[in-house]
Design a protein around this nucleic acid. Structure first.
Length: 220
DNA sequence: AAGTTGTCCAACCGCCGAAGA
DNA sequence: TTCTTCGGCGGTTGGACAACT
């Protein structure tokens, strides 16, 4: 039996009060982030260390962007989810100021539903077999790349507005992410363009770099 | 106006992997 | 090598509020 992360006695639960927030902010501003287990006691909070960490990282940390997601953020979440699955921390890492919790909530409450409505399986990002395919008029998928990807039996990325995405995101991935993307079980049906010779040279100059750039052709 | 249902989102829970003893 | 501790992550819950009947 695993020990609880903290003593359940004398531990506050539920919403944080302003005083608690202030205590945590004050403590971290002075001492910095550190041993979360010891922070509650040191800061005079009757909270679990994990709870303090969650509160700080998701709400109190400077630079947190609150409020509704922009269209491009939403589109990026969909695309990243298609690539990474439910790796909310990785996805959030690509959205400056957004937290994994927020991205996860937004996915579950908005995007998931929207995709289902569109007849797209939110897990596989492919048209759901039990759903009727959304009717797409010929005007809806103009552009060679869209029909091309369909002809190539590739599943187009749909953006959050119900149309095929037409932008061209350049996304930089860490080595870990790249290995996730390229691992066989994930059939992600990506169209990845080859780097230009200039970029190739640039990359070879920085072989030790921790990230590599993958141009994902999201034109559908 | 009151009751019911749906939605949102902050917070909790439990599991996992890394690090250290 | 094994055990313990801790931080981090993703899934889930439950309260607050809005929309609907």
């Amino acid at each position: 039996m695993r020990k609880p992360c903290c003593d359940k006695e004398n531990i506050n639960k539920g919403a944080w009060s302003k005083q608690e927030d202030q205590k945590l902010i004050d403590y971290i501003q002075v001492h910095g982030e550190g041993c979360w287990r010891s922070i509650p006691k040191a800061a005079g909070l009757h909270r679990c260390g994990k709870s303090c960490r969650m509160r700080w990282l998701n709400y109190l940390r400077p630079g947190i962007k609150r409020g509704i997601f922009a269209e491009d953020e939403e589109d990026l979440i969909i695309k990243l989810h298609a690539l990474l699955g439910n790796r909310w921390s990785l996805i959030a890492g690509r959205l400056p100021g957004r937290t994994d919790n927020e991205v996860k909530n937004y996915w579950n409450s908005h995007i998931r539903r929207k995709l289902i409505k569109m007849g797209i399986d939110p897990n596989s990002h492919k048209p759901h077999q039990s759903f009727p395919r959304p009717h797409v008029s010929s005007a809806d998928h103009q552009g060679a790349s869209t029909s091309e990807s369909i002809n190539n039996n590739k599943v187009p990325f749909f953006n959050s507005r119900g149309s095929a995405a037409t932008d061209h995101h350049k996304i930089s991935f860490t080595k870990e992410e790249t290995s996730i993307i390229s691992s066989p079980p994930l059939n992600l049906d990506l169209t990845i363009s080859l780097p230009s010779p200039v970029e190739e040279n640039k990359n070879s100059d920085h072989e030790s770099a921790k990230t590599c750039d993958v141009d994902i052709d999201l034109n559908c």
